[in-house]
Design a protein around this nucleic acid. Sequence first.
RNA 1: UAGGAUGUGGUGUAAUGGUAACAUAUCCGCCUUGGGAGCGGGUGCUGUGGGUUCAACUCCCGCCAUCCAGACCA
Length: 493
Amino acid sequence: MSKEITSRSENYSQWYQDIVKKADLAENSAVRGCMVIKPYGYALWENMRDQLDRMFKETGHVNAYFPLLIPKSFLSKEADHVEGFAKECAVVTHYRLKNDPNGSGVIVDPDAKLEEELIIRPTSETIIWHTYKDWIKSYRDLPLLINQWANVMRWEMRTRLFLRTAEFLWQEGHTAHATAEEAVEETERMLEVYATFAEEFLALPVIRGKKSPNERFAGALDTYCIEAMMQDGQALQAGTSHFLGQNFAKAFDVKFLSKEGVNDYVWATSWGVSTRLIGALIMAHSDDSGLVIPPKIAPLHVVIVPIHKGQDDIDKIYEKVKPVMAALKKLGISSKFDDDDTKRPGFKFADYEMRGVPVRLAMGMRDYENGTIEVARRDEKTKESRPFEGIIEHIQALLEEIQANIYNKAAAFRETRTYSVDTWDEFVKILDDDQNRGFIKAHWDGTAETEDKIKELTKATIRCIPLDVVAEEGKCILTGNPSDKRVIFARAY
RNA sequence: UAGGAUGUGGUGUAAUGGUAACAUAUCCGCCUUGGGAGCGGGUGCUGUGGGUUCAACUCCCGCCAUCCAGACCA
């Protein structure tokens, strides 16, 4: 492992890649566009997944699992949906290989061609709604609140670890309701679950909003999203929740008999977050020393590095900190005593910083004699010597402080990089400025043409129309046509 | 995509027709442990197929792959 990572200000993309690789999160695999998530990166995902799963269950959802392969015909039943995904689908055409008659290796057996091709799911609406048809007959079967943890595949042209890979892990919730109001409520409820998760656990401030029609999910009537700002001022969509109306119910003929005896199509939602959240976490909080992980999601909270002259010293220090580790465990705080004597302390310090462990304790014989211990916090990269007495309470409080501090830093950063802009010149200037680029609140005339034109001219898109937007008379930033509210523009990942 | 560039140890680079070099990682040994130590030794490489040549990492052609630009996206 090389010793330095590229500086954040010098080359943001390279900085990001360095952290992913050097913090041991993931790497590119032999398969085009697919990544290998390494144990440390996967532990991070597991923590996110477990917390989200709890939140889904608290809101009445249950988990189920649907097939990886989707018959091609299913995908073509919803017109917008197929148009949105057709260009990036991997297709299974054969079911058998055979030895190559002309030499070594195997070839696809031409006799084993499938009558109907199977699509590797890019998302599961179609197969799930095909299944729901048999599950939903009456108002008594509603609402149907199901979530699936799965992998999906989208044949992306250009990939980037965690942010965009051909295969990724995610969860997708698919619900069915008796009324449009209920479905909209569900869509908004799940958006709020995502926003709460991002803010409380990932320490990532997000804007809750709706997508413009241009940016809507293929097949949705309304797409809600949470948008986060990365440290280069670009936006990252961190989660989406869709109100699908009756589109999929109609496409798959899912009807229910109401209490009043009326037969009607059900109303649907779908919502998802993915391993992209790991990318968001990295780009929002990390620094030139590597990853910074909020305590509430960290695979390891506290690392203890002994500084020693021999095995005797290690044993003494271990005896001293053992009760502390046990007490921390009872508080739900994980700790590790790193007694690997093939690595020197300086190396360990740098390594745990790279991996973003929130708190580091160091104890040498000097501390041992004096009844002190060195406490270093990852978020601020500061350290202090403290009395060993009372260290447990201190760590507990410190972890909470770190969690809050990481959030506050990200929120303050977003604040300084959010602009309210009324002239086109200023709009362009901010988007072109590498050092100050950010979110722009500006008026928009509400047309897709204007949005497209702005994208073409500046690469910026409408990230969302915030849910808490206030009505305000104004003129479109591009056309000067009347507008009644500001929307958020930014360049995005 | 009638686009542009590039393929050398695990990784990052050097060698412009003539013994494939350096850094880092890795392995062994010694020495070390309060911020990524040091010394000695070992392993390991020209994407692929063809052509030109006494001789090809180097020149030519095909293929493959990657990156950049486009299009798309959780």
